[in-house]
């Protein structure tokens, strides 16, 4: 097991280096630091001095790959200082001069506070709905439920957020529209984002799980169980559900690490100071250092999710062998 995990982590390294190279190419080669400085200083006729000063403050005033003037020609380069350091999770300073690593540590908690309940409640709701639909398959109820699912998944998540804020917060005054408090008081601000996150996922989630369960329901052991005279409910919960959950698991485990990143849309609409709104603010302020750090962090978490998926697969399905 341990050897397998170590090997999987080893596979991740070339991918992370690849991601690193892509972000480096995007942020420093496609656009030179000079152009970034120009955009940041916001003036068409910026003096050369101002640009040099902006670059010097942020450490962009060294060559990209090779610094012939320095004693340490490979170390004193943008690639080493800004890109390779990401590989050891040293995120450095944002263009505004704040420590990105510290910001991330602080802001991941509100993100998790929204994302974890959304994931768990969403899973429970979607699986129950899907089981209901499978129980009543080939009936009017199924038809109605599936039409409802298509309708729900055709609505942009933006409308769920706007509608939710309008009805729950504005019209009925049940919860505050937006904002956040640290500590236990946060629940008031979390209810609405979580509800909306769950509702927005019902359409696609139920449809997906229904397909997975139906595939399982067409297998021989289910037919055998029915033929033996096992009741439909028992077939559903004892036979179908445990096996049907295996593919559900793959889809869920892979997103667990990414929960840290938060949701850009939900967090910005509800004013939750998590990593999602952090990223969004950085995008809007054109803070390239933060965006670069978040791109890298996101890839790391995704790859972690893939590895976790493989491991969890072997734990729930004895047929899968580690190789």
């Amino acid at each position: 097991m341990l050897a397998y995990i170590v090997r999987r982590l080893g596979y991740a390294i070339p991918i992370l280096i690849g991601v690193n190279l892509i972000t480096f190419a995007l942020f420093f080669v496609v656009n030179t630091p000079d152009q970034m400085a120009r955009v940041h200083l916001g003036d068409k006729h910026v003096s050369e001095d101002a640009i040099q000063q902006w670059k010097a403050q942020r450490g962009y005033d060294v060559p990209l790959f090779f610094n012939a003037e320095s004693d340490n020609p490979l170390r004193d380069t943008i690639f080493f200082q800004k890109s390779l350091t990401l590989l050891v999770f040293d995120f450095g300073l944002s263009d505004e001069g704040r420590a990105i690593g510290q910001d991330i540590k602080e802001r991941m908690w509100p993100s998790l506070a929204v994302q974890i309940p959304t994931l768990i409640i969403g899973l429970i709701v979607n699986i129950s709905f899907a089981l209901f639909v499978v129980l009543f398959r080939a009936s009017v109820f199924e038809l109605a439920a599936m039409i409802l699912c298509v309708v729900m998944l055709s609505i942009s998540s933006v409308f769920y957020v706007i509608g939710g804020q309008f009805f729950f917060a504005k019209l009925w005054n049940l919860v505050p529209i937006s904002g956040y408090l640290h500590g236990i008081e946060a629940w008031k601000f979390l209810i609405l984002p979580v509800i909306i996150g769950v509702i927005a996922g019902i359409g696609s989630g139920t449809r997906l799980y229904r397909t997975l369960f139906l595939e399982e329901a067409s297998r021989d052991y289910i037919r055998t169980a029915r033929a033996k005279g096992v009741s439909e409910l028992r077939v559903l919960f004892r036979h179908l559900l445990p096996n049907g959950l295996i593919p559900v698991l793959t889809g869920v485990v892979v997103v667990i690490p990414s929960l840290f990143m938060g949701s850009l849309l939900i967090e910005s609409f509800f004013g939750i100071p998590g990593l999602g709104s952090y990223t969004l603010d950085a995008i809007q302020a054109q803070d390239f250092a933060i965006v670069r750090a978040m791109v890298f962090l996101g890839s790391v978490l995704y790859i972690l999710g893939l590895i976790l998926t493989d491991i969890s697969y072997t734990m729930v399905d004895p047929r899968v062998k580690l190789s």
Binding site: V19, I22, N31, L264, V291, V295, G298
Partner: peptide, 17 residues
């Protein structure tokens, strides 16, 4: 492995530049 929305955001920023 790069989160789609971040890749899009980063690229659009660069197009703006």
């Amino acid at each position: 492995s790069i989160p789609g929305i971040l890749l899009i955001a980063a690229s659009v920023l660069l197009i703006d530049v």
